[in-house]
Design a binder for these strands. Structure first.
Length: 575
RNA sequence: GCGCCCGUAGCUCAGGGGAUAGAGCAACGGACUUCUAAUCCGUUGGCCGUAGGUUCGAUUCCUACCGGGCGUGCCA
């Protein structure tokens, strides 16, 4: 379909004198299925040609010769609508999909350009709450999309493994901690200590000062402080890795905030050397007011570096290491100003690659009655959400498909898929209200809906393989030659057209940093399949139709599977 | 106060400056002796926050206002 789009652009270019790329940018997808696959609005040329758009449309239509790929181009009012030749599309697309299989959608040639994606970044020693899900799944999806587009990707987990919270934890642990409890369930236990600390600090304000001192000791490489910190970090990281593993997410690097400690001094000196920083009240600050932003602190008056200093050091380090084409930060929208400041400072330091840095923001997850707060102990653990979703999936399978041999495996894929998909389907910038009923609802625009379509296709293909009269598509190359009775129903046509838009959706999702496009697309494709399923029998179809329908749904199966894979979701063959 | 983001059906949300603004959920009615009913079909449901502006054309872009969220020098 991308080739079709290109062909149309070229035709329009020769006919109108527009640049092909410009013509392509004007192409749109008509609102209704029966109106062609691409549309060119002729208003654009009306002024220049001093003619009514309707007239332009019909004149252009008359000049266009249909060919193998382009079925027809006809004017409909002020629009020039292009219809792809169904048979040609089918013959060209389906073999490609079936041949490529799981690789379909991936760019065949890879390029050397690297994209660094900074995502997830949970705070060590704090629980992995649902709030951390967003960065994790959006970042993971972006990584997968970039890989599909042929980029070399570095997924970095910029762990929150340094900062004043460790001072607090050390104080809490030294006062109230028990080693055995820590070993048993480190993340939950550290979380309890963290909440306890804040509760006690309300009554005893000296605790905060004590925490600051312990953090200072940590910064001075104090032996005891370092030992406790390393223990907390190691134990927590182990837990986090277990969760990532469960989610099927792999990082290329776990270099967190602490990794940049040795670079902070140089980074600050660099800023000072460039005249970017000045002293103020004992602290060091970068004055960004000339650039329309509030100033930002690079160093506290006690000498400790701040978040932005660390991010600055990290960005420079990453550029030296990876020579990235793009550096993407998948971080909450509340940090928009931080990244605007960071990128401006990078630019002011003279690094032209500052324009390759992108902040991909997303909205907050909150409760009906307020925001989640680790300090107040007001969080929902991601693992609890995942487990409950999986339990729910298991219960439904038990009820609907009691004979399924591996219910656990299917329930795992469906439950995880539902949670991930639920986060990805809407525009990331919007806040999400956490609602158990919604998380556990597996009908409508959800992963189970898409997965169900996939399982149904697998079921048909499985039965086809068992039945001597039916032929599974991958076993017979001559099938394509069957052209009689080809795509007799509108549901088949629609399914083919939607399937053909897959690659376009990959590009759009990556270009907009919005995996939601892909998620929506998969719902559309699953919906088209379900309509087809209800109207067009496959196994019991007339001989002339059956083979093409096998091929059609095999294509859909692969596209759904690969599409879900781009979102980090698995597709069970039975559910 | 200032800055950024959001505002579309009862609820949750799609909507690539263009054709009659669409889904899901909920409600109601229908379809399982037929490839898995986690499905499908139908009905009900809209001053696209308000007022201006740009444009041949604005839910979409701009401005102001209203409402909500977030941020705004020693957390991250």
């Amino acid at each position: 379909m991308l080739a079709f789009r290109e062909q149309i652009s070229n035709i329009l270019s020769t006919l109108t004198g527009l640049d092909a790329a410009e013509a392509a940018s004007y192409l749109e997808i008509p609102p209704e299925p029966g109106m062609g696959e691409y549309s060119f609005p002729c208003y654009l040329l009306a002024r220049q040609l001093r003619k009514a758009p309707q007239a332009i449309a019909s004149e252009l239509a008359a000049k266009i010769e249909p060919d193998r790929y382009l079925g027809k181009a006809i004017s409909e009012g002020p629009y020039l609508n292009f219809y792809v030749d169904r048979l040609h599309l089918f013959k060209q697309l389906i073999p490609e999909i079936v041949r490529m299989g799981t690789a379909y959608g991936k760019e065949e040639k890879r390029h050397d350009e690297t994209i660094v994606v900074d995502y997830s970044a949970p705070n060590i020693a704090k629980p992995f709450g649902v709030g951390h899900l967003r960065s994790t799944v959006i970042g993971n999806a972006l990584c997968r999309l970039y890989i599909a587009l042929g980029y070399h990707v570095m997924g970095i987990n910029h762990l929150g493994d340094w900062g004043t919270q460790f001072g607090k934890l050390i104080v809490a642990y030294r006062r109230w901690g028990e080693s055995s409890k820590l070993e048993k369930d480190p993340v939950h236990y550290l979380y309890q200590l963290y909440v306890l600390f804040h509760r006690e600090a309300e009554k005893e304000p000296d605790l905060d000062e004590e925490a600051r001192q312990w953090f200072r000791k940590l910064e001075m490489n104090d032996k005891e402080a370092m030992e406790i910190w390393e223990r907390f970090r190691g134990l927590s990281l182990e837990e986090f890795k277990r969760i990532y593993n469960f989610l099927g997410i792999k990082f290329d690097s776990f270099q967190g905030e602490s990794f940049y400690n040795h670079l902070l001094e140089d980074t600050i000196n660099l800023a000072v050397g460039k005249g970017l920083a000045r002293e103020s009240d004992g602290a060091l600050l970068a004055d960004l007011e000339p650039h329309g932003m509030p100033p930002c602190l690079l160093r506290k008056k006690d000498g400790a570096a701040l978040y932005i200093t660390r991010d600055l050091a990290a960005a420079i380090y990453r550029h030296e290491q990876y020579h990235f084409q793009k550096l993407v930060y998948v971080v909450g929208a509340e940090q928009t100003l931080h990244f605007k400041q960071l990128f401006k400072i990078i630019e002011l330091l003279g690094y032209t690659w500052s324009k390759h840095c992108v902040h991909v923001p997303f909205g907050l997850i909150h409760f009906k009655d307020g925001r989640m707060s680790t300090r107040e102990g007001n969080v929902i653990f991601l693992e609890d959400v995942l487990n409950r979703a999986i339990e729910m999936a298991h219960r439904i399978i038990q009820e609907k498909n009691p004979d399924l041999h591996d219910k656990e495996e299917a329930a795992r894929m469906v439950g995880l898929g539902a949670v991930i998909f639920g986060d990805l389907i809407n525009d990331r910038i919007k806040d999400i209200e956490f609602d158990w009923d919604k998380v556990l609802d597996f009908s409508g625009e959800t992963a189970p809906y898409v997965q169900y379509a996939h399982a149904r296709i697998c079921s048909i293909l499985r039965k086809a393989g068992q039945d001597g009269n039916a032929v599974a598509p991958e076993t017979d190359d001559s099938l394509l030659l069957s052209e009689t009775g080809f795509l007799s129903d509108p549901e088949e046509e629609q399914l083919l057209i939607t399937m053909a838009r897959f690659k376009e959706q990959i590009r759009r999702s990556a270009a907009d940093y919005r995996p939601s496009h892909m998620a929506r697309y998969l719902v559309d494709l699953a919906r088209d399949f379900n309509k087809f399923y209800h109207n067009c029998p496959v196994l019991n179809a007339p001989e002339s139709l059956r083979k093409n329908r096998f091929l059609l749904i095999e294509g859909v199966r692969i596209v759904i599977k690969n599409g879900l894979d781009l979102l980090g979701i698995e597709a069970p063959e039975e559910m």
